[in-house]
Structures are given as structure tokens and as C-alpha cells.
Amino acid sequence: MGITSPEKMAEEENRDSIHLTRSLTEKIIAQDAKGETDQNAVLELKKTMSRNRQNAQVERLQHLNDVMPIETVKKIHIAQETGASNWLTCLPIRAKGFSLNKQESVDAVALRYGWPVEGLPKTCVCGDPNSVDHTMTCKKGGFVCIRHDEVRDLTASMLREVCCDVTTEPTLLPLNGEHVQYRTANTTNEARVDVSARGFWTRGQRAFMDIRIFDPMAACYQRIPPEAAHQKNEREKIRSYGDRIRNVDHGSFTPLVFTTSGGMGPKAKCFYSRLADVMAEKKHQPRSHVVAWMRCRLSFSLLRSALLCLRGTRYSAPTTIDLDGLNYQATVVESGILV
């Protein structure tokens, strides 16, 4: 979580403080009232100290990776993905949609590091032995199927700020003898994707997006790194809908793949980067603040989706945020979100 121990850092911090204030200390001892400290030298010294500290942290992490269990190492790797830690770095302001209750906070930290979660029944309603990994993949009760709903609704609300004809759960055009490339393609007449918007990638063209949230600790992903798992899920989505949407609906298709911990696949990163560019331009807001706000909101949405699978009916509905007129820069500053 990036929380350092003051006891372990005290000696190093004292040494750095002495080095930074040495020139000023010398002038005080010499009673030099007219002398000035070289601010460029102080700034360069700060950069060197920061670089040395980062190198030391990398070395400590490498040492921990060598001695920790493989599952814990993978959990840490997953927690380092872009967007996986944003919910930890902002102030819990309910009005901004960045709050968790006590139970959710404890569960979120336990999920992040693979710690035992207290209060779970020993047997799942499906009859199998219950565990954290089982709750993330069990289809009984429908929680896995609906856990992407908040991400879908948030994405649609952001698209409505910059695009027209935004629809959730749009039905694709039925097939009338058209040939699709892959056998795993969805050929049913009632086939739907999660979100569509007109004019996102190309002016006038309809863009279709489908969301998948997967558990990177599931048995089928144990032997592959998170990056390969993202690409695998993206290929499956493209084979299901890509060819049909391109040739029948004459639109574009983008799979939005996430992990339950908050990581994003390559195409999802590209999509939300483009969305941040357009939102920043239209709202006349700094892009860095729009990106920071977007990642934080997505992080909370993905965390709530995981908590939905974990606790079921104990899941609390998120605060609805009206994006119309939202000042992203002020929200990022007030919430303490890292840019």
C-alpha cells in the first residue's frame, strides 16, 4: 500500500535532511547574512535522493518476490497494473462517488493482497466449497453476469458527454445468410453488446463496445501473466462480435476488458485514452485531471463489482454522479486524486 515504517526510514530521512540543509547550516554558522543557497543544486540533490529511494524500493520488492509465495507475487503484480490502486489514493468523499463503508474497505484490502476474508459461508449456494476465488467465478445467483453493469453505465454516461445516439444493451442487426469468420461468433438474432455510440472513432460511424471483467486468479489464468490474460479475453470478444459488427452493422467494435482488481486491457486503455482526450477538449479541462478522475471512478466501479460477487446482497448502490457541468479539475483536487 506504499505506507512506509517511520522507524525504518528515520535514519535515512535524517541523513537526507542533513544533506539538503548543509549549505544553509554552513551560512548560519558563518553568520553569512548576504549569501544565498543554490536552489538548482538543492533541486538536483532532491532528484538524486528520490532516484536512490526508488532504486532501493525496487531492490526490496525484488527480494520480496524471491521469498514470497507465487500467488502473493502474482497478487502484487496485479495490484501494480494501471488503475488498480486509484481507489486507495483518494479521499473517501461520498458526494464524489469515492466512498466505501467499513465492510467494503476491509474486504477491498483483503482482495487486493489475497488475505482471508472473514464472514463468508463455508459452502456456496451452488453446493461447492466456498472461497474468495470461487465467489469471483461462480455463476449461481447471477452476480458474475451483472457485475459489469456499473462499468457499463459509467462508460455510457461519459460517452453521452461527447457522442450522440448512445445506447446501452443495443441489439445487433439479425443475420440474413451472411457468413461470419469464426465458429465462436455470436450468430443469434437477439445478440447484444453493452454500449454503442455514434461518432466516437469515426465521424458518423457507430461504435460498439462490450465489457468483460475477469478474475486473474482463476484457475485458467494461473499459468499466464495478466498481460496475456487480457489479450486472451480481448481475442475472445473480437471473435464473438468483431466480424459480425464490421460486416453486418458496418460499425467498429472495441472490447473493454478489465480485471476484478481494476486493471485494463490494451484496447480498453486506448478507448478510455481517446475518451479522455475528447472530454477534456469539449469541457476545456486539463487532460491529466480528466484521466485521473476517470481512472478513479472506474477503479471504484470495478471494486464494487468484485464486492458484489463477494457479498451479494450486502452490496450497496453507488452514488450517482451527474457529469453535466462536472469540474474534473476541482474534483481531482478536492478528492486528493494523484495526477
Rank of each mutant, 00 (worst) to 15 (best):
R160S: 14
V166G: 03
E169G: 11
L175I: 15
D153K: 01
P174A: 14
N189Q: 13
A156I: 01
N186Y: 00
E161G: 11
T187D: 02
S131I: 03
N130Q: 15
V144H: 01
H134L: 04
D133C: 08
T168E: 04
H134W: 04
V132E: 10
R152Q: 12
E150I: 07
M136L: 13
C126T: 08
S157A: 09
T167R: 09
A191S: 12
G177V: 11
Q181W: 04
C145Q: 12
T171H: 05
T155P: 09
P174C: 13
N189E: 05
T187N: 05
Y182T: 09
L175V: 06
V144P: 03
N176S: 10
K139V: 12
G142R: 04
H148P: 01
T184R: 13
C145P: 01
L175T: 10
V132F: 10
E178G: 06
P129A: 15
T168P: 01
H179D: 05
G177W: 01
P170V: 13
R152M: 01
Y182K: 07
F143D: 07
K139D: 05
E178Q: 13
T167Y: 02
T135N: 07
N186S: 13
A156W: 00
K139I: 15
C164E: 13
R160Q: 05
C145D: 12
T187S: 06
D165Y: 10
K139L: 11
T187V: 11
L172D: 03
T187Y: 01
D165N: 14
T135G: 00
A191M: 00
